[in-house]
Write a protein that binds this DNA or RNA. Structure first.
Length: 426
DNA sequence: TCTGGGGTCCTAGGACCC
DNA sequence: TCTGGGGTCCTAGGACCC
């Protein structure tokens, strides 16, 4: 038996944990750069604010109804997310963190749907009391059915639901696009093939599904019929690539500004690699002008280089960026977005080809962080992320002074991850 | 004026090997 | 007239997820 535990309107719910005055008020959280609505409270949804819509398109609604607006505060959301997962581990030994607001839970013992629903109510109750965010719990014999049940739980007053493989009546009423793994494109194709509901889909032959939707679609069909094809990934595979990118607050035309942004991304990238014990084999840089401003004339560029030996040394990433940015930067263009990509990430213990001629300033033994990086991480951890950097790359003392930094005008405090910003209890 | 930031998996087809 | 039977690796592109 699988369960999917999903936090309702997660980012908004996180904001409400420490600001209960927001309860009952229409509230939204914006994407980076205060661009789009990426989380909406039920009240905000009722006002017609669409998911992913840019703020300027519904600003009149915000003003007319006094919608509470927040910039995204991912430190807070990440911390709340960890707390939710901690609670789940008390209920079941096997938990797969699927995303920041969703986890799969596997119950390895026999459990009836009735008992499952009782468990679900208990899980919701404890998360609500201990962490302070509302959740929904869906149960099913496969992950896909649990996910569907989670969707159905929206309609249930107790926020829990079970869906079995034999729920034919339900399947006849459920649109196929509600199924996990059936996206926009497949929906269009399914409609054209006369498939509109879950029932229509599961009734098709395997050969038909395989032919039109590859093994991916076939697995989904099996899952809906109650045959598990996706198991719990309790020890997720280490990630293979990493992307660090941002849209800029203001368009960037100068090479120095572009470089400064990319160097910041290298800091973030290096830190993330070291934390995960990973090393990047190759580095990519990309830049892009604003696609919304001049749709016909969006320019982008990218370049990649291979490291002689995989690295997680920030300084080596920066050196790589220095070489690559010259290839992609074209004077006269106004860049709106840029990023770095770290490819073919390897773990410290992965066997690898040694370089015959060690790079100057590099290091030979993978897994051995150079003392400089250890010091950098330690100082940044103690004194803050911008307390130290590589001076010659134009790092300003406070990066908010840079034009490439995005807008974050309505950020809530770091209630749980900064000593200075702990909330007061009166 | 203003439009996010991450990821994964699968397939087809070409180049190349014996 | 008739033209084998295996493989691997890489890339681009398309689909999906949050």
């Amino acid at each position: 038996m699988y369960a999917l535990v999903d936090c309702n309107n997660f980012f908004v719910s996180c904001e409400r944990v420490f600001a209960p005055y927001l309860n009952g008020k229409p509230t939204i959280v914006l994407s980076n750069n205060d661009g789009c609505a990426i989380a909406r409270s039920e009240e905000a949804k009722a006002l017609g604010i669409p998911m992913g819509a840019p703020l300027f398109k519904f600003r009149d609604i915000v003003e007319a109804h006094d919608v509470k607006v927040f910039s995204s505060n991912f430190s807070l959301y990440g911390d709340i997310s960890r707390r939710v997962v901690d609670v789940l581990h008390r209920f079941a030994p096997e938990v797969e963190v699927y995303s920041v607001d969703e986890s799969f839970v596997y119950f390895p013992f026999d459990i009836t749907p009735t008992d499952a629903l009782e468990w679900g109510r208990k899980i919701r109750d404890v998360i609500w009391r201990w962490v302070g965010v509302p959740t929904r719990v869906g149960f099913g014999p496969t992950k896909t059915l649990a996910k569907l049940a989670n969707n159905m739980a929206k309609e249930r007053s107790d926020g829990v639901c079970y869906v079995g493989a034999d729920y034919t009546d339900l399947f006849k009423k459920t649109p196929i696009e509600n199924v996990w793994g059936i996206g926009r494109n497949n929906t269009k194709k399914l409609y054209s093939l006369g498939v509109y509901t879950v029932y229509d889909f599961t009734s098709k032959t395997n050969a038909f599904i395989r032919k039109n939707f590859t093994v991916v679609g076939l697995k989904t069909a099996f899952e809906l019929r109650g045959v598990p094809c996706f198991t719990l990934e309790d020890a997720p595979e280490p990630r293979k690539n990493r992307l660090i990118s941002r849209s800029f607050g203001e368009e960037v035309t100068q090479l120095a500004d572009l470089k400064e942004a990319l160097v910041q991304f290298c800091h973030a990238g290096g830190r993330k690699l070291r934390k995960a014990g990973q090393f990047a084999s190759a580095l990519g840089v990309f830049v892009r002008t604003n696609p919304h401003k001049n749709r016909k004339n969006v320019t982008s560029g990218s370049a990649v280089l291979n490291f002689e030996a995989p690295t997680n040394n920030t300084l080596q990433l920066i050196k790589g960026v220095e070489a690559l940015v010259k290839k992609v930067y074209v004077p006269g263009h106004a860049y709106k977005k840029a990023g770095i990509m770290l490819f073919e990430l390897v773990q410290a213990h992965t066997p690898r080809q040694q370089s015959m001629v060690p790079e100057e300033g590099g290091y030979d033994h993978i897994g051995e962080a150079p003392a400089l990086m250890e010091a950098l991480d330690a100082i940044q951890k103690k004194c803050g992320r911008f307390s130290i950097g590589f001076g010659r790359y134009g790092l300003k003392a406070r990066p908010s002074q840079s034009k490439w930094q995005g807008r974050r005008e309505k950020t809530s405090p770091l209630y749980t991850t900064s000593w200075e910003q702990l909330p007061d209890v009166k």
